[in-house]
Amino acid sequence: MEQGTVKWFNAEKGSGFIERENGDDVFVHFSAIQGDGFKSLDEGQAVTFDVEEGQRGPQAANVQKA
């Protein structure tokens, strides 16, 4: 798993970007967020995640709040 920080997340659209510790920013969709309840992330929040190849390039998967 990688570690990173939420660069921004739009709760209305359900997507945003995570700033990786090593590498380019990666797209995140709300469906990749693990946990119960409303799936959203806050700017500056620390997260851990896997990276998968999506239709438009790398994207975060199995996102967990650190």
Rank of each mutant, 00 (worst) to 15 (best):
Gly54Cys: 11
Glu43Gly: 11
Gly23Tyr: 05
Val47Gln: 00
Asp50Met: 14
Asn22Val: 10
Phe9Tyr: 08
Gln59Lys: 08
Glu19Leu: 13
Asp24His: 12
Pro58Lys: 09
Asp50Arg: 14
Glu53Lys: 10
Val47Ile: 05
Gly54Tyr: 05
Phe38Leu: 08
Ser40Glu: 06
Gln34Glu: 10
Gln64His: 13
Ala60Trp: 00
Val51Ala: 00
Asp50Asn: 14
Phe27Thr: 03
Asn10Lys: 04
Lys65His: 11
Thr5Trp: 15
Gly57Val: 06
Gln59Asp: 02
Val51Asn: 01
His29Met: 04
Lys39Ile: 06
Gly35Glu: 09
Val6Ser: 02
Gly44Asn: 05
Val51Lys: 03
Lys65Ser: 11
Ser31Tyr: 04
Val51Asp: 02
Ile33Asp: 04
Gly57Met: 04
Lys13Tyr: 08
Met1Phe: 11
Lys65Cys: 10
Glu12Ala: 13
Ala32Val: 06
Asp42Gly: 10
Ala32Arg: 00
Trp8Gln: 06
Lys65Phe: 11
Lys39Cys: 08
Thr5Val: 14
Gln34Arg: 10
Glu21Ile: 11
Ala32Leu: 00
Gly4Ala: 03
Ala66Glu: 11
Ile33Gln: 02
Gly35Ile: 09
Gln45Tyr: 04
Asp24Leu: 12
Lys7Glu: 04
Glu21Pro: 12
Glu21Cys: 14
Ser31Glu: 06
Glu2Val: 11
Met1Cys: 13
Gln59Gly: 03
Phe30Gln: 05
Trp8Asp: 04
Lys7Ser: 05
Pro58Ala: 08
Ser31Val: 04
Ala60Gln: 01
Glu43Arg: 15
Gln34Phe: 10
Asn10Arg: 00
Val51Cys: 07
Glu53Asp: 12
Glu2Gln: 14
Lys65Glu: 08
Gly16Asp: 01
Gln55Phe: 13
Ile18Cys: 07
Lys13Asn: 09
Arg56Ala: 09
Gly54Ala: 07
Leu41Arg: 00
Lys13Gly: 06
His29Asp: 05
Val26Trp: 01
Ala61Asn: 08
His29Thr: 03
Lys39Leu: 11
Asp25Tyr: 14
Phe38Gln: 06
Asp25Cys: 14
Gly57Ala: 05
Arg20Ala: 05
Asn10Pro: 03
Glu19Arg: 15
Ser15Gln: 15
Ala11Glu: 07
Val28Asn: 01
Ile18Gly: 00
Val63Phe: 00
Glu2Pro: 04
Arg20Met: 08
Gln3Gly: 08
Asn62Val: 02
Glu43Phe: 12
Thr5His: 12
Asp24Ile: 12
Asp50Glu: 13
Phe30Glu: 04
Gln3Glu: 10
Asn10Ile: 05
Ala66Ser: 12
Lys13His: 12
Pro58Asp: 06
Asn10Thr: 05
Val28Gln: 00
Val28Ile: 08
Asp25Pro: 08
Ala46Tyr: 13
Phe38His: 08
Glu2Asp: 08
Trp8Ala: 03
Asn62Gln: 03
Phe38Thr: 07
Ala61Lys: 12
Asp24Ser: 14
Asp25Lys: 09
Thr48Glu: 06
Gln34Gly: 08
Gly16Met: 02
Glu43Pro: 15
Val26Gln: 02
Asp25His: 11
Ile18Ser: 01
Val28Cys: 07
Ala60Met: 00
Arg20Ile: 06
Gly54Ser: 10
Glu21Gly: 09
Val26Ala: 02
Gly4Asp: 00
Val63Pro: 03
Val63Leu: 04
Gln45Ile: 08
Gly54Glu: 04
Ile18Glu: 03
Arg56Met: 11
Arg20Glu: 01
Asn10Glu: 06
Asp50Tyr: 15
Ala32Ser: 09
Val51Glu: 04
Gln59Trp: 11
Glu53Ser: 10
Gln45Ala: 09
Trp8Cys: 13
Ser40Ala: 08
Val63Tyr: 00
Val47Asp: 02
Val26Pro: 01
Gly14Ala: 01
Glu43His: 13
Gln3Val: 14
Gly35Met: 13
Gly35Arg: 00
Phe17Asn: 01
Ala46Phe: 13
Gly4Arg: 00
Ala46Asn: 10
Gly37Tyr: 06
Ala11Gln: 12
Ile18Ala: 01
Ala66Pro: 08
Lys39Gln: 08
Ser40Tyr: 13
Lys65Asp: 08
Gly57Tyr: 06
Val6Ala: 02
Asp24Glu: 12
Val26Arg: 00
Glu53Pro: 11
Gly57Gln: 03
Gly23Ala: 09
Pro58Thr: 09
Lys65Thr: 11
Phe38Lys: 06
Gly44Arg: 05
Ala11Leu: 09
Asp36Ile: 11
Ser15Leu: 15
Ala61Asp: 04
Ala32Tyr: 03
Val47Arg: 00
Arg20Lys: 06
Ser31Met: 05
Phe17Met: 10
Asp50Lys: 13
Gln45Val: 09
Glu2Leu: 14
Lys39Met: 07
Ile33Asn: 01
Thr5Ser: 08
Gly44Thr: 04
Phe9Gln: 05
Ile18Asn: 03
His29Gln: 02
Ala46Glu: 10
Ala11His: 13
Ala32Phe: 03
Gln59Val: 11
Asn10Phe: 03
Met1Trp: 11
Ser15Thr: 14
Gly14His: 00
Phe9Ser: 04
Gln34Trp: 10
Gln3Cys: 15
Thr48Met: 11
Leu41Cys: 05
Arg20Leu: 06
Lys7Ile: 07
Ser40Thr: 15
Asn62Asp: 02
Val6Asp: 05
Gly37Val: 05
Thr5Phe: 13
Gly16Thr: 01
Glu43Cys: 15
Ala60His: 00
Ala32Gly: 08
His29Ser: 05
Leu41Asp: 01
Asn22Ile: 10
Gly35Val: 09
Glu52Asn: 08
Gly57Ser: 05
Phe9Pro: 04
Lys7Asp: 03
Glu53Ile: 15
Phe49Pro: 01
Glu21Tyr: 10
Lys13Thr: 12
Trp8Tyr: 09
Asn10Gln: 05
Asn62Phe: 06
Asn62Tyr: 05
Asn22Gln: 11
Gln45Glu: 14
Ala66Tyr: 12
Asp36Cys: 14
Glu12Cys: 15
Gly37Thr: 06
Gly23Met: 08
Leu41Ser: 02
Gly16Gln: 00
Gly37Met: 06
Gly23Asn: 07
Glu12Thr: 13
Asp42Thr: 15
Gln3Lys: 15
Phe27Asp: 02
Phe9His: 04
Val28Ala: 00
Asp36Gln: 12
Glu43Asn: 12
Lys65Ile: 14
Lys39Thr: 07
Gly14Tyr: 00
Trp8His: 06
Gln3Trp: 15
Gln34Pro: 05
Glu43Ser: 14
Arg20Trp: 08
Ala61Arg: 09
Gly54Asp: 07
Ser15Phe: 15
Gly23Leu: 06
Ala32Asn: 07
Asp36Tyr: 11
Asn22Arg: 10
Lys39His: 06
Gly44Val: 01
Ala46Gly: 08
Gly35Trp: 10
Ala60Pro: 00
Ala11Phe: 10
Gln3Ile: 13
Glu12Ile: 12
Asp24Trp: 09
Phe9Gly: 02
Asp36Arg: 08
Ala11Lys: 15
Glu52Gly: 07
Asn10Trp: 08
His29Ile: 05
Gly23Lys: 09
Gln34Ala: 11
Gln59Ile: 11
Leu41Pro: 01
Ala60Ile: 02
Val6Tyr: 00
Asp24Arg: 14
Gly37Ile: 06
Val51Gln: 04
Arg56Asn: 12
Gly54Met: 06
Asn10Tyr: 03
Ala61Ser: 10
